[in-house]
Nucleic acid binder design. Structure first.
Lengths: 254, 254
DNA sequence: CTGAAACAACTGGTCTGACCAGTACACTTA
DNA sequence: TAAGTGTACTGGTCAGACCAGTTGTTTCAG
């Protein structure tokens, strides 16, 4: 506290940034709450003493961050929005797609998330969610003959329900982003390797096992299965040198 | 494919949004790469056939998303940026602060990440990184008397090195975001509960144990320890009903 | 010939003032 | 009372302007 005064680097703050900052603060500190309205752009230009172009730039930034929404003609002004995971989702997607992140990392990440969500789902799932899962796996089984599109849709449904049943949005969002990025990457790599029938049967068997573990509320087993299956599925695509760490994630601890 | 034509909901697309979309696409598809330059705002208004105000709004949105950077006076035009975790970080923070995401979820998320990164670090760490960790824990031990600021800085250093040694940026980024959000939340909750000496000693002991597991390349043990400690640390702040799932995450599998 | 100073041609940041197409709400009118 | 009409707002966009800052070039003194 009584340290010598220290100077820190500065960077010019543009007017619209200062406005964003203020409004963001007001939202963070609950002075502004979802449903509240901001004054109109023309009023705002008065209170911030800037031109409309400037307040609009600020508003656009806030809007792109999912904090407010403007609608033309609405006399109540821009609306403060409930925070939504959409922005996080987009940010995650961008990061992963940018190639800053290696396939191995993505798979490791997915292994953890998938495992954890299955464990949590086994604990937290409601009876309704269990039935949804049952319906999804049965749909998979039914569509195994009719085509890979319907099959993988049902597959996605099953996993989506598991995420939901985990009651952990954060994992859901991150897992979803990772899954999306992963299929993109894999599609780029081996374009359109269509699910072979054998492949489908394997996936189905896996999902059934997981389902039963969740049904039995056996979280440890559900997590272990999920991890193992993801590793098995993506393992071959990963360079040999990177497989050790992955394997470790599969079967942890005492 | 031959389905009946289906109409879908539309929403008006503002001009600046269309511009953002196009530039975002160009970046995602690698037509535009980090270091590349966009034409100047005045040129852009020509190519998109809009006014400068509109291209500026688009640029502001892209800038707030961390995709480009404009600098006044630079005749080369706005620069395409390397994707950075900053946006993700901010998005996660906002989501957590807004209360959309519960403390429990955040802790669960952190438990997974912390565990996984320790496991991976045990496998992937280099000798140099091991020494960094050793230095950090020793710094913790040394500063245990001198004050909590230095102590927790060393603590953060230790964990940062572990993240780094895991060689998984994704986990690092998410873990960091979660950690940041968590300390924010906890600081709000019990404001400035200063690390008691006992608390510090406990943290130190934990970190030492983890360090030794990483040193011994015992990934399973390192992960298990990390999970257990995080659970122990945050467990009390979590509502009783939510603790079961958390406990499950700690000691998984067979 | 060299190095420094002056310049010109750009850049982004901001402002003013204007127009349009929508929306909400009060005010008619049947 | 119910349907229709106005009107006064909203946000979206445009045009044109000014300033301060950067860059690269040109000029000029040594």
């Amino acid at each position: 506290m009584t340290d010598k005064t220290e100077f820190v680097a500065v960077k010019p703050v543009r007017a619209y940034e200062a406005i964003v900052e203020q409004i963001e603060q007001a939202i963070a500190t609950r002075q502004l709450n979802p449903g509240d309205r901001l004054p109109s752009e023309r009023d705002l230009m008065g209170t911030f003493a800037v031109s409309r172009a400037t307040v609009r730039e600020a508003l656009r930034v806030l809007e792109s961050g999912g904090l407010v929404r403007s609608r033309p003609g609405d006399p109540r002004g821009p609306e403060i929005l409930q925070a939504s995971p959409a922005t996080l989702h987009k940010a995650m997607n961008r990061l992963v797609r940018s190639g800053t992140i290696k396939l191995t990392e993505l798979v490791e990440f997915r292994v953890m998330l998938e495992g954890a969500s299955c464990t949590l789902a086994a604990e937290h799932r409601t009876p309704e969610q269990l039935e949804e899962m049952r319906a999804a796996v049965e749909a998979m089984e039914a569509s195994i003959a009719s085509g890979s599109a319907a099959f993988s849709q049902a597959d996605v449904d099953f996993h989506a329900t598991v995420w939901e049943a985990s009651h952990n949005q954060l994992m859901q969002i991150c897992g979803d982003a990772a899954r999306g990025a992963l299929v993109d990457l894999v599609n780029d790599r081996i374009d359109s390797a269509p699910d072979s029938r054998a492949q489908m049967k394997l996936s189905l068997a896996h999902d059934y096992e997981i389902f039963h573990a969740i049904e039995a509320r056996d979280g440890a087993r559900a997590g272990h299965l999920a991890r193992t299956f993801v590793i098995e599925y993506y393992g071959e695509m990963i360079e040999h040198g990177d497989r050790n760490g992955l394997a470790l994630l599969g079967v942890p601890s005492e």
